[in-house]
């Protein structure tokens, strides 16, 4: 009984997805629409792949972390310092980041694959659970998390309470993209262990969607990510074992996600976990408004 559950919880794609979603939740809880995540994930997968191939596994992780956070800071600077519209910034940076990722990958790639890291299932499962719980604790029980959520609900009132909104949003971005980077590392070195141009493209938007489906709550996001990852990777098994038609199997992860959205929004749960109301609001402190 334990073994199959562990296999589900330790599915490397599900773990990567969990980290991406959690990273997105932290950033969006601070009120920033995180559309650049898709480009950054694509980029960090490429960087991880070539860094691991050329230098080594540990160095690869560090390089991935540093470069991912550097890109996210460019994004955060547009939002916080230049007061650029969130959607426009995210979408246009995406295009640039896809390109930079492809360029680096194609230039430094030695072969199309690398040796995957062998890591025990309990450890992988633990990474998923622990990150979810820690993210929840940080957001809902710590001082920093309260500040982050306050910026996402009402930056003006947060500022009046003594929160430095731009600083808090920078911190949320760094925390979020640290998780995103680790997610990309797990995806590249454990799940996929190969790379071609634009590998990983689309997972960022999936993460944004699933984060939204969880109403930006880490503990709701976790089961969604696990269920999605399980159905996504074991679709062929379902097909073989139960003879489920391919079309249904392929649609299943998305249908389950939809079901979760319905459950979250149709029950009192949605009242309890309020969405970040100021999401996407271009916040400029000196504007005169009571």
């Amino acid at each position: 009984m334990v073994e199959p559950i562990l296999t589900i919880l330790a599915d490397p794609l599900a773990i990567a997805l969990t980290l991406w979603i959690l990273g997105d939740i932290v950033v969006e809880r601070s009120g920033v629409i995180n559309l650049a995540i898709d480009g950054i994930i694509t980029f960090s997968i490429a960087v991880t792949f070539v860094a691991v191939q050329n230098i080594g596994y540990v160095q690869g992780l560090l390089i991935s972390l540093a470069s991912t956070i550097a890109l996210s800071l460019i994004f955060a600077t547009f939002i916080n310092v230049l007061h650029a519209p969130h959607v426009l910034t995210g979408l246009s940076l995406n295009i640039a980041f896809y390109g930079v990722g492809a360029l680096i990958g194609l230039r430094y790639m030695k072969s199309r694959s690398l040796v995957p890291i062998g890591i025990g299932k309990p450890i992988l499962a633990l990474i998923g659970v622990a990150t979810a719980v820690l993210t929840w604790f940080t957001l809902y029980r710590s001082r920093l998390g309260t500040e982050i959520r306050a910026c996402g609900f009402n930056p003006r009132a947060a500022e009046a309470a003594g929160v430095r909104v731009w600083r808090t949003r920078y911190i949320a971005t760094i925390i979020g993209y640290t998780l995103v980077s680790i997610g990309s590392y797990i995806y590249t070195t454990i799940y996929r262990s190969g790379w071609s141009q634009y590998t990983g493209m689309g997972y960022g938007f999936l993460a944004i969607t699933l984060a939204m489906a969880s109403s930006w709550h880490p503990l709701i996001a976790y089961p969604i990510a696990i269920a999605f990852g399980y159905l996504y990777t074991s679709s062929y098994a379902l097909q073989l074992l139960y003879g489920v038609p391919t079309d249904v199997v392929n649609a299943l992860p998305f249908m389950v996600s939809l079901a979760v959205v319905v459950i979250v929004y149709a029950t009192p749960l949605s009242k309890k976990v309020a969405m970040p109301k100021a999401l996407g609001e271009v916040y400029f402190r000196e504007e005169r408004a009571a």
Partner: peptide
Amino acid sequence: SQRPQLIDDL
């Protein structure tokens, strides 16, 4: 402030 500067959802 003139109007309460509290965050409604917290």
